[in-house]
Design a protein around this nucleic acid. Structure first.
Lengths: 336, 336
DNA sequence: TTCCCCCGTCGAAGCGCTTCGACGTTTCTC
DNA sequence: GAGAAACGTCGAAGCGCTTCGACGGGGGAA
């Protein structure tokens, strides 16, 4: 292994000069710098990460904790991870991958051993057991999603409330007067993340504001459940013409069910969703949707973290404004 | 930060004794060890990863390079990554996540800076540009998949040739005499990984051996392409009763197409696939399939790497035997 | 009893890097 | 033209850990 003293000898300077030439933390004459750089290239020198981490107490590594729990939409997680890695590299950092499974002990371990400088935690629960730990850690962190008590933590996510509102407003703008929200599986509403509730809040608020008739239906992640909800909706709200779907797994089966029940999309029924763009695009009937911008969230999370590492203040809460893409699944209400 | 000297002072011993008590590399009296461990707990001591890496020239971190290329089945990659992380943790290692995008420079960087001790490279191409680099690196690596010239490298993958054979034998055993392979998109066969070719080899060899009539059809990853292949098959091989599918994206559309063309699965047509179990299970018609055992491959890859790091010799090639799970999509050939 | 060896522990060196203080040399500033 | 300030470089210390050699004490072999 070639080390800094080798470079120094080769270039005829002291090791500290090499270090300064590299970091630019002190002025070095142009000529010396050139010579040092030439030696570095000639010898193929790379600073030893561990030594540097020891001397600077900065590892230039970020931890990323990914969820494993069933019901998580895998492509979203992957896209998120890739964008975190890419953005981190752009800021000269690497990414250590941890699984949820490791739990609090895992977080404490990588933080306390100084393996990582900072942490990104996905899939945050309302009352996440990791919150006190994250608050007490001496390294900064960013949470994806909002817990019930976000004070003292940096959180980022799509503004799900606004997303719910936006969907209703879109439908209202097309003349729809009776709408329904088909949401996440029931258990999500009780135990999990806050985003499901926020969608409901936004949906309901916007419907009330616009004086639309509305209803909310949790729905399990199976085609059968989708079918059941479709039938129930037709029975309970015969005048229904607009549906908002916030449940990746049943988006397609639900549309199929509606069509089998004789409702054309978007002819008889307009459908909008909150889901990844790729999903909305890939369906038989491309769906007008609010994007789940996992890539952007990942990039922004890294940027927040890097700022914190740089000693700058960052907002505690970052809500990404929803962006809607119109596709073929919504239309102006047919006047009967 | 609490360091080893703090523990030493607290326990009334020297730092080296603490180190030996922890590593067990020299005998330490039971009583002293107890005292040291008590101090460690009392102070919450964690060895500094960078310092340890510097002293031992071992970071206890593995690099995992994940593919980004389109056409990769994302859940498979994710499952693989999770199993790598889990297994690595079981061997007291962590995992650094790199994207294909970083290329050779990225590999060189993490290896030469001693950020990682070893590398796992997924999605290996037949003539992968990273091969010479991996051979020259001073750290061990394991490739997922087999390049054209695997000599000097450690590779692991499902035995795709055996998988192709196994599918044919299964169909032959059920009395089928005319079979077809619907494979990966055409471009895969020219530029990409070797596994596609190996399936073809196994399929063809087994068909010839069993004197079955057979044909091979690459197929693009779109429902339309699936439909086209289905029609073509019926036209060209009217006596066709057995199909092997090696293409995740079109498995479902292809079955749909067959049924729309009047062929019941498995009544008129038996279908087997080489794909992840979750996919095979989740279809409307659960498909008899050879599993793509990404979890197992990941775990085995880590174990190979750990062995190499321990100085033990490992086989250059590891081929995982195919495992078939029978589901509802194959049946004995109806005797007309 | 003597010698040797092993056990248990300590002190010091060293891993490769950064950074602080110091010092000679220029370059301004008034 | 003298003092101050800035420049460019060096040497040494230190980051926290492991490990090598050394050493005193106790037990076994002779």
């Amino acid at each position: 292994m070639v080390k800094i003293t080798d470079v120094a000898r080769h270039a005829g300077v002291s090791p500290s000069t090499v270090s300064y030439a590299l970091s630019g933390k002190r002025p070095i004459s142009e000529e010396t710098r050139q010579r040092v750089e030439a030696s570095i290239r000639a010898l193929g020198y790379r600073p030893h990460a561990g030594a540097r981490a020891l001397a600077t107490s900065r590892s230039k590594v970020l931890a990323l904790v990914v969820p494993l729990r069933a019901g998580i939409h895998v492509p979203v997680v992957m896209q998120f991870a890739v964008s975190v890695v890419t953005t981190a590299r752009g800021h000269d950092h690497d990414v250590l991958l941890l699984t949820q499974e490791e739990g609090e002990e895992g977080l404490r371990r990588v933080a306390d051993t100084a393996l990582v400088d900072a942490l990104i935690v996905m899939d945050v629960q309302l009352a996440d057991p990791r919150l006190p730990l994250l608050r007490s850690l001496d390294r900064p962190s960013v949470l994806i999603g909002f817990p019930a008590e976000p004070a003292g933590l940096t959180c980022i996510d799509l503004d799900f409330k606004a997303a719910g509102e936006r969907c209703v407003e879109h439908l209202a703008g097309l003349g729809h007067r009776v709408v329904a929200l088909v949401g996440s599986p029931p258990e999500v509403y009780v135990r999990q993340t806050a985003f499901a509730q926020r969608v409901v809040q936004g949906f309901t608020a916007a419907a009330d504001r616009g004086r639309l008739a509305s209803s909310v239906h949790p729905c399990a992640a199976s085609p059968a459940a989708a079918r059941a909800v479709a039938e129930q909706l037709l029975w309970e709200q015969p005048a229904l013409t607009g549906v908002v779907v916030h449940n990746e797994a049943i988006l397609e089966p639900l549309i199929d069910a509606f069509e089998e029940l004789g409702l054309r999309v978007p002819g008889d029924l307009s459908v909008t969703a909150i889901c990844p763009d790729e999903l909305a695009e890939s369906l038989r009937v491309p769906v007008t949707s609010i994007a789940l911008p996992s890539g952007e969230v990942g990039a922004r999370a890294v940027e927040l973290l890097v700022k914190k590492l740089g000693g700058k203040a960052v907002p505690e809460a970052t809500l990404l404004a929803p962006r809607m893409t119109e596709r073929g699944s919504t239309a102006r209400r047919a006047v009967a």
